[in-house]
Amino acid sequence: MTEASSTLMASAELAEDVRGRSLWFDAWRRLRRNKAALTAGVLLLVMTLLVLIGPALSPYTFDFTDWDHVSEPPSLETQHYFGTDAVGRDLFVRTLHGGRISLLIGVVATLVSLIIGIAYGATAGYLGGRIDNLMMRIVDILYAMPFMFFVILLMVFFGRNILLIFVAIGAINWLDMARIVRGQTISLKQREFVEAAVACGVSTPRIIFRHIVPNLLGVVIVYVTLTIPQVILVESFLSFLGLGVQEPFTSWGALVNEGAQEMESALWMLVFPASFLALTLFCFNFIGDGLRDALDPKDR
């Protein structure tokens, strides 16, 4: 019995392995041909590096006030490469610093929504029946809520700390994830390797998290690359309203807000953070699109 089941497991795993590898190889081959997605990927890498090491290349810090150069346009001489803002802070450093926070929020909040969404969706899909019905009904109800308004309320009432932004944005973004994961799980659970696991007496939570979830990876990756820009957008939306990241820290949304107020006299204050924000969103969207085409060939 144990021998039979272990060979069964082994062969199931082996089959998965071979199939999995070819799927990823196929996807990579298709992705490589997608020039737009590749370019976006490289750009994003450059952006991340710039955001991480860029501030060290400037003689200024993000909260240093240079009284000799207030509201000055970009200049190489003063080493204010993007100019300075209304209180003389270096915009190059602030834009990159804001980028760190925007990207960080994008990634962390997406992870939060990922964890909730996968756990919820996989459980509902795998258990099926009445529990699935109830769980998805809850998702339907939550789906109809004007969540942005709740997030605004949360930010107003509980102070504006970054941790809360992570949780609040993550907590509203898991609904889509849960739906997608549930759909995939339902089709996965009829496959032989799951049957084999059930036959071997593997516990339900273990089946869900060891056998189902790893196989969702393709869908999840596509969704993650498309969620990150959404989250960055939500964060910058909040910061734009003055409800997100607080001084002296900053994010792209907050910088765009400041820039928009000064744009008639100091256009550079709007242009640099706005282009960084737009370029990043652009890259993420292109990569997400490319990955979707690569991993889901039926749309071709």
């Binding site: 957008l233 820039g259 744009m263 256009l267 709007l270 737009a278 969207n285």
Partner: peptide, 22 residues
Amino acid sequence: AMTGISIPNFVIAPLLILLFAV
């Protein structure tokens, strides 16, 4: 279209003001 998705409307709005109003 991709540009339209990637540029948030609170960036577009000030730019529109700058162009058409200012």
